[in-house]
Simulated assay, not measured.
Amino acid sequence: MRSRRAYRSDLSDARWALTEPAFAAWRAARTGPGTAARVHDLREIVNAILYVNRTGIPREYLPHDFPPYKTVYDYYAKWEADGTTQQVHDLLRDKARRTHGRPSPPSAAVIDTQSVKTSANVAEASQGIDAGKKTKGRKRHVATDTLGIALAVIVTAASVHDSTGGKRLLDELAASHPSVTKVWADGGYQNSVLQHGAASGIDVEVVKRPTAKGFQPQPKRWVIERTFGWLMQHRRLVRDYEALPQRSRTMIHWAMANKTSRELTGESTPSWRTETDNPCTTA
């Protein structure tokens, strides 16, 4: 990494050590006779992606001490397309599960949706209106494990019904995590989702709302509500700015990777920090 003052979103040495092997393997697979020299530090590319993810700025407004924004987006798109981002996210999730004494393959999951507004650059065909929340934009269909870490993510127009998206989500969950046999959901999912899950060997249970007045965390399902709170700490996800749904999905994976790597290294996201407290290196 070239010398510069660190940003709060930068990877510390400990966090980079968790993911460097995956990125190093990616670069090694693309190095050979006649290959142009790699001039950009992959750690700086990741730092730039996390800066956009955490602050919510347009890519073209990246500070000049990062690599060019078009280069950053090129890596972002390539890593999304070839599965590198997903691989890094899943690697961190498995490490986190083992740290909590859980086996890497999950056996249970929680599903829910989150509707967010879209920006002006999102095509009309890629968005819709959530009739329940009266929100025009996109809908995130998310499945997490019981720690709240993402297992499957699908991004659709907000007009897609929870049950329709829920069936697609269960299909992806069954394909990518066949060890999952139990799923908790809220009352927004119809019986067709329960039947769809049963056909895939997944027992879908609807968690009923507490009858008492006032706020009460819902049993089992509270973990995914906390996950949505984690996502909202990343300003790029407060509104969907991505032109393509798959780019939105990738931005969620980066946010979860950011959160999970901080947890694994015992780091937090303080509201202030002195120069001597900053764990990020500048050399």
Rank of each mutant, 00 (worst) to 15 (best):
S107P: 00
Q190R: 15
N278D: 15
D13M: 02
E225M: 13
T164R: 10
Y75E: 05
Y76F: 15
E263W: 12
T55W: 13
L264H: 07
H40Q: 14
T250I: 02
T211V: 14
V206Y: 01
V160C: 03
A257P: 00
K259G: 04
N47Q: 11
D277N: 11
R221P: 03
R262F: 03
S126M: 07
Y61R: 12
H64Q: 15
T144W: 03
K117W: 02
G32K: 06
V155R: 04
S176K: 12
K182W: 02
T146Y: 02
A109Y: 02
D130A: 00
T250Y: 00
R4V: 06
S200P: 00
H177Q: 12
E20W: 05
Q233S: 13
P68F: 13
I149Y: 09
D145G: 04
H234I: 01
R27Q: 12
S192G: 02
T282A: 06
L173P: 02
T269V: 15
P33M: 12
D171S: 15
C280M: 11
R226F: 14
A29E: 15
G165H: 02
K208T: 09
R54K: 10
K117T: 09
V39Q: 14
T260L: 09
D65L: 11
H141L: 04
A36P: 04
N47P: 05
D277E: 15
S179D: 11
V193A: 04
I202V: 15
R235Q: 10
T250G: 00
R43S: 09
E267V: 08
V39C: 08
V193I: 08
V223P: 01
I45N: 09
V116T: 02
M232T: 13
P106H: 05
A120G: 00
R4N: 03
R30T: 03
V116E: 00
S179I: 03
N258I: 01
G128R: 01
E60I: 10
T282L: 09
G56I: 05
A150L: 08
T269C: 11
N53Q: 11
N47L: 05
P279H: 03
D13A: 12
R226S: 12
Y7E: 09
E60G: 10
V110M: 01
P178M: 13
W26Q: 10
A29T: 09
R15F: 08
R209L: 10
Q86G: 06
A37F: 04
